[in-house]
Design a protein around this nucleic acid. Sequence first.
DNA 1: AATAATTGCTTAAACGTTTAAACAACATAA
DNA 2: TTATGTTGTTTAAACGTTTAAGCAATTATT
Lengths: 338, 338
Amino acid sequence: MNKVNLKDIAKHLGISIATVSYVLNGQEKERRVSSATAEKVREAIHQFEYTANQIAKSLKTKKTNTIGIIVADINYRFTTHVVRAIEKECQLYGYTVIFGSSYENPETFLTILNVLINKQVDGLIVIPVDNDRGYIEQLKSREIPFVIVDRVPEGSDLSIVSIDNKDLAYQCTQHLVKTGHQRVAFMSYQTGLSHLLDRKAGYVTALQDADIEIDQNLIIEIDEKNFVRGVQSGIDALLERGKSCDGIFFTTDTIAVEAIKYLNQKGIRVPDQVGIVSFDESDAFPLFHVPVTHGRQPLRQIGEVAVKMLLELIDENTPKGNTILKSTFIVGKSCGEK
Amino acid sequence: MNKVNLKDIAKHLGISIATVSYVLNGQEKERRVSSATAEKVREAIHQFEYTANQIAKSLKTKKTNTIGIIVADINYRFTTHVVRAIEKECQLYGYTVIFGSSYENPETFLTILNVLINKQVDGLIVIPVDNDRGYIEQLKSREIPFVIVDRVPEGSDLSIVSIDNKDLAYQCTQHLVKTGHQRVAFMSYQTGLSHLLDRKAGYVTALQDADIEIDQNLIIEIDEKNFVRGVQSGIDALLERGKSCDGIFFTTDTIAVEAIKYLNQKGIRVPDQVGIVSFDESDAFPLFHVPVTHGRQPLRQIGEVAVKMLLELIDENTPKGNTILKSTFIVGKSCGEK
DNA sequence: AATAATTGCTTAAACGTTTAAACAACATAA
DNA sequence: TTATGTTGTTTAAACGTTTAAGCAATTATT
């Protein structure tokens, strides 16, 4: 038994499809459907449990009430939290979410982009792919509203949601200094991505403001290809005698977790031997023997704002721009705090 | 400038829409389009970068190449891993994924169900909502192919992907016994859900097989409403003098993590004072000072199999049934293993 | 030479909606 | 009386595809 459609309802009531449609779309007043007819229609709709075929509707109205989101990998803490907020917010506004993962692969990214566009999504939220350069041009040439999350590319006619990476990195570094660490190291990925450059700038500025000289030996930048080994040899290098490093600022939670594992393994005591601060938290932190001091991005808010910006963009009544959200700083005990 | 459609292509070439469509769908042979014409069409398609409007296509073919998945919360380890596999598998077969979260709320679940059905998804994968009873009837009455993951409801004309919960729980318990623990406790949620009942059965059977008497005092079942307190008072109860509990089997990773946090906090040494095993792992385990022995569900495989079953169901050439996947058991050092 | 088969296309209906435009019936105003 | 409005409804085109059916031109068969 096939789903009942407008025609079925109309035939059953002996009226035209148009009339039924008007009632359904709340246009009885404008289209002067008599209240008797309207009532009949409502009854029939209820009786037959009619629900509109959104595909047909979309074809006609050119609106799918669907947004696409392209993430790097759903299996990241950042992603799940942001996606969760996006989906919640969309539920609120009657939008649904189609999603695809690029797995950091630019080609996959473009494939997904095409699929989503052919599905006629009303807009896109993009959590960018590392190392991908051309996607913004592709997006722009498609004339589809989109919002970029997290990463701030050049070019200002874009809609972007991000946080002040430099500021939060500044706070992280400053906290290490304030808790008595003199030789504060920096551990990050080897990359040209804006958010990580900003974090480095925050680190540098904080040290300068504290009149501490920057020591290039304390700056470790890891090749992602060789992640685990990179972290380990980075830690080894930092903690070798002579360097007298007494604090480390990790620019991502992934690096922090891997480093903490290794510190655990080597029996290095935190915070006694070395104080640590992480940019971003990890669900794993609570299992470490001491609460890890860290910066916290407002992931939920990032998702919410991204959706709001996108929906405004879709409704065409908004200027584009970069929305910068406030982060918070969570003080634990990994720097020897009282 | 609007997207180019079949009509544009046809007009440009001075041929009919039908011919273009036939070429596009690889029906040149059957429909006897001359190779000259076909070539012209292909060129034009390329030149204008034509891509089909999937909405129109779907309306006609009644196929959206989209599946819906309803999860409890994207923010769970189980969910992200399964969803990741589902999406990867779908990419392979040219399907896209629409998703919605029920947040454990049956009403939200039904709302999402309706939205997805109106979007004409070809099928559904459902990671069930705790405490929801009616959803299966709702699903069945909708005559839409669907696969249930993880939880095994009564009624056998369903397609289900699950693991052998009893068997894996048996292994977990047996391992505690084999590593010298005599007074093995069980900590789970207070629930009637099949997978947790099965895990309890595994625990009981393992002890019986080892000729150890079941002690109701060592069985803790936590009210989810009061989760953190429940875990803590459960641990307190188990470790109080007199009970001489020397091992605990946690039936979920969430319970295990919360318990480990509390053990940490209280300074209780694992595995010296108490050995622990967890059903399911957590990304947090590596930060614990000792590797946690645990059962591992084949999450990726669960996702893959769910998709395969669903696509077969959609193509109508498959019997339904319960596919039970093999789990593995990861030996750490949390039971005092050498 | 007449008929049949093949080739290469086109026509047009259909999918389930929305919506501008038309229309019939009646009421009101001049 | 004629024109003018108002009310309640229907008609039909359109959205961008797919696809069965039709048809003219050419080629093959008898």
